[in-house]
Design a protein around this nucleic acid. Structure first.
Lengths: 221, 221, 221, 221
DNA sequence: CTTTAAGCGAGACGGTACGTCCGGTCTTATT
DNA sequence: AATAAGACCGGACGTACCGTCTCGCTTAAAG
């Protein structure tokens, strides 16, 4: 649930020259360079020139394949998707959520991680935003069993919406660490997991919402 | 709880020339220009040149007072602080949280609002990040009575942490609308408010945390 | 001997596009613009922006090739070198020197000429100073026959140093017209030529200097 | 003949406060600052701000008295005029001219002296150009006896123009050291002095010019 | 095994914005 | 009345990146 894995998971780029040809080599080198530059210098040092230089590739070769930095990040995110990821299964909803939260916490807590950077990028590049959305959709889909298993165990109502539970559990971490930028509180993952689990048990995420939302409130100014 | 009010709340800038002198006039014009440009063109059109031109002020005059765009936004945020804001008081924790969430929802739902833009800016400028942190701290502090009153009414345990409740209630909105960028779901404010209230009633935010956090999970990526 | 020729001697820039490519066209346009601006507005109106605008070229394209205005002037001077120039040959040292002096006089007498401006620039930009030095070295070398021929004719001693004669003949013109800024005196070229010729005849520039310089005088301020 | 004396000749500025009042103090401090900055940083570091800061005076106080940097230099030059200066008197025209040349040489030979700087300034500021012109006029007038005494001794024709002799003697130094920027040649002062003396003896500067100048030569550039 | 065309290296270009320096003018407050 | 303090307007500087273009060369794949 936590974060995309790093670019170093790419299939060793420098070796295979024949398979896929020169193009594949360039792509690999560039994406690797993007990953390195991101963790070293952060996002706003990530210029096309710097990437090209680091990759040992010419500027125009980058522009040819990727429109801009956003495209680079989107591609990086896609290529870095960890298809082997799976949710925890501890036998308890709260403990499962806690495990997920620990992943998220680890990805966000220590300074400008790859995740942080990708989120920041998603504000500026539609490509990156879309790619990040896909990543999260995927993670939510894979994590759904955490909730459906709890429903099967009778921990939560059968109609409980998995996604809502997952979002409720993880959102406070993103909010505190990315937006509010409070100092990482080690108790935070558990508190958020417990709260989400408690709400789920109380039926807060059971589908047939009893009362419809009455509508918008006056602008908050 | 939702968002800082717009720059147009500034005391009519063009009129008062003597009080505060030329400097105050310039400051007012510039901050007004920042606000206007933000809502019109969004954040990445917000260049110092554009601000200066719109404000009818010279570039260097902007640089003299504000280091960069981040400084401008921080100042805007400070000057736009709405000191008259107060939390709702409906007599019920869930309804109070719902009212707060409606404010947040309104500020985030319709495209690139001032709030969105300030959050985006907070990723790139420390000044803006600090100012936004202060804004939220202030809002959380002012909203605390929502929880303490509920505790006084016996709705939730006496030791319930107000901030944790507030964050739990609002975080899903920020997460869905800003990070996941899902289409605004009108049921979201109620669902999040209900979940936070349920968790609070269940004692998930009561101070003496029963079980300590067992430690970190394996790196997630 | 007088002055570098104007930039309009450049090989017609707008026509040849393929030969030398775009780069050559830009260079020609820019140098032409420099020349025009110099004679029209003088040296301190010669800003990079103005040059670029006049040349119909972008600012950054100027900075790419030429570090600064000094580089522009140096390049102008180089490109404007008149390879066809040759010294007069009247059969008399004094008349030859007079002809040279008339060239110098013409270049300096009427207000801010290209020469004036290049000299002024040489005070502020090393590039321009170097280029001007090369120009003068070249002119002195080409003018040497004026003196060697006189020596061959027996007008002056065989060991006469050509450069010293040329400098002695022309220096008073530069001094009066550029430094002292006295009103141009039409008799000046002849007087300086006659003096230099007389001194040369008297053996003042013959190599084996009889008495060595006794050393420095007290500081003059 | 050589150069204006340095600003440190000013009547000790920090001491006398009453004579002339605050204004005189400001003027003294500012001119002293100009002199110091010139020798330390050269001419193009000589900004009004820097002068004001060094003088411990406010920017506007400088602008009030002196229009610009040129005015400052002109004033400095005036105030630094050394009224006690007098020409040498060795009993021989060539030796007198040599002594004068040594002064000039010393002022020009070692890098960017005050003299160099003032000449450079004279290209950019009319004030400075005028002041420098006055300075040189004064020096030429004072040096005239060098020639008139030689005429009285019968060394040169009675009608010899003193100024022309002086210019012929010194001009090569300015030309070589300031314009051509050749490395300082210790033999130069003597060579120029000897040439000027020889020409004078030959009657090249005797007033009734035998042949009038035939007119301008074709443009040289 | 050749041909061919896609991709690449190279590098200039137009362009936007940056942040800085300096010039010169103004107003207000002080002394 | 002159000065200090300091903001302002304005012009120019030189830099960093952006995204586009043209040109010539290499090389992977199609004929």
């Amino acid at each position: 649930m936590g974060s995309p894995s790093s670019a170093s998971d790419l299939p060793e780029p420098a070796v295979r020259r024949r398979t896929g040809g020169r193009g594949a080599r360039v792509r690999g080198q560039v994406l690797a360079a993007v990953g390195e530059l991101l963790v070293e210098d952060g996002f706003d040092r990530l210029t096309v020139d710097a990437v090209a230089a680091r990759a040992g590739v010419h500027r125009t070769s980058v522009y040819r394949r990727w429109r801009d930095v956003g495209g680079l990040l989107a591609d990086l995110l896609d290529s870095a998707a960890d298809d082997s990821w799976g949710p925890p299964d501890t036998g308890s909803l709260e403990e499962d959520l806690l495990a997920l939260n620990h992943e998220v916490f680890a990805a966000l807590a220590d300074g400008p991680s790859l995740t942080t950077v990708l989120i920041e990028a998603s504000f500026r590049f539609d490509d990156a935003a879309r790619a990040l959305g896909h990543f999260w959709d995927d993670r939510h889909a894979r994590s759904a069993p955490v909730v459906t298993r709890a429903a099967a165990r009778g921990e939560v109502p059968a109609a409980t919406d998995p996604r809502a539970v997952l979002v409720t559990a993880t959102a406070p971490l993103y909010h505190e660490l990315l937006l509010l930028r409070t100092a990482p509180d080690p108790a935070l993952p558990r508190r958020a997991a417990r709260a989400a689990a408690a709400a789920a048990r109380a039926g807060a995420f059971a589908d047939p919402a009893p009362g419809p939302d009455p509508g918008p409130a006056p602008e908050g100014g």
